[in-house]
Design a protein around this nucleic acid. Structure first.
Lengths: 196, 196
DNA sequence: CGCGTGATTGAAACCCTTCAAGTTTAGTGG
DNA sequence: CCACTAAACTTGAAGGGTTTCAATCACGCG
């Protein structure tokens, strides 16, 4: 759990004394590729810190199609914040795209950390605000941009994910079909567009 | 500022003693229809509580098209949270759809209220989480639903706004053209769909 | 009354989807 | 390690939904 420790110490700025108390509260779990961490209708009891590997969260619509809300690779946290916070059934699923090692963060962990550390409270506040900012940008993109623009935005924002995530999942994240993404990529290749 | 007072006392659960201190810190402003409260590139110094009237926040893309992110009628707060929190230039605009009376809420107000009242901190936390939940639902809709479904969702969620907001702005909120929305409505009328 | 803004309608164009087939890639068991 | 199979990706053609552009209609306000 090297990454998680580093994460707590640097991002959340947890002091050594507080740190020892907190670190006991978390649990590590190894997940195989394809394994489901949260199913629709369940209450999301944990946030998942990705120590190594790759997760995704997604919804399934009436016609059975998946729509990916988030990818999470190393040092990202994947969760359904609403479900956790309001203690209500989630309408999304979380599963592993690669074999993954996660750190389970419970609500109790968040609460205790918030109580004993003002820097953790601060960090948590920033995390929420970041989440809102990120979602707002995505909404704006979905409202205003074509498939091609959205894809270019994706590969510049997440060059690492572009290589690790199957194409059809990227398509799902962008809100288009795999076929469309394939054609978009072909177009970009013709125009001599290169990632990186 | 009846609405704002009620809002503070009930939603944020501010006690009478704390209340007197806080209420002095806010400012009231009357805005004419069409007047701009926040322009692109500015830092969003205030959140706007709508005492009476109707605001919207929106972006303007490269081709000059507007994309509406949020409407706010009575008892709603319109703002660019990211810009306020991170003290960075906003890429959105806020203006008045109707003659509007707003209560200006500064960052200092938020900070002071957070310091003196735990119930305010609590309320603020809930507000952030609500915002995230709401945005997540909207992203999911944009990823998965047709224009017709998105419109039906809108009129059931916001029946009051449906009457007060010009149709072309609803179209902008939904991510479609005014012409398309007009045709969607025609289709729904044929199918005998009635709001309410 | 006349002007301007918003809503509607039509026709053509465009983007994206769907369905179907083919190709490539990756994983699995012999 | 190869052969087989399933999954992922590509490609084509047809269709659907949405946009664009242009014209018309409806309405409120000066």
């Amino acid at each position: 759990m090297q990454n998680f420790i580093k994460y707590l110490k640097t991002k959340a700025n947890i002091a050594e004394s507080e740190f020892q108390l907190l670190i006991k509260k978390v649990e590590i779990r190894n997940i195989e590729k394809g394994q489901v961490l949260l199913g629709p209708g369940e209450i999301c009891k944990h946030s998942f810190f990705v120590e190594k590997g790759l997760l995704r969260s997604y919804t399934i619509d009436n016609s059975g199609k998946e729509h990916i809300l988030q990818f999470g690779s190393e040092n990202w946290i994947v969760s359904d914040r609403s479900s956790t916070f309001f203690n209500e059934p989630s309408d999304l699923s979380i599963d592993a795209i690669e074999d993954t090692q996660v750190v389970l963060i419970s609500s109790e962990f968040i609460n205790e950390a918030s109580e004993i550390s003002s820097s953790f409270r601060n960090y948590n506040q920033i995390a929420l605000q970041n989440h809102i900012r990120h979602q707002q940008k995505r909404i704006n993109l979905l409202l205003s941009a074509t498939a091609e623009t959205r894809y270019m935005n994706f590969i510049t924002l997440y060059p690492d994910l572009t290589l690790r995530v199957p194409q059809w999942m990227i398509a799902s994240y962008l809100g288009i079909t795999p076929e469309s993404l394939s054609r978009v990529r072909k177009e970009l290749a013709l125009k001599n567009f290169k990632p990186n």
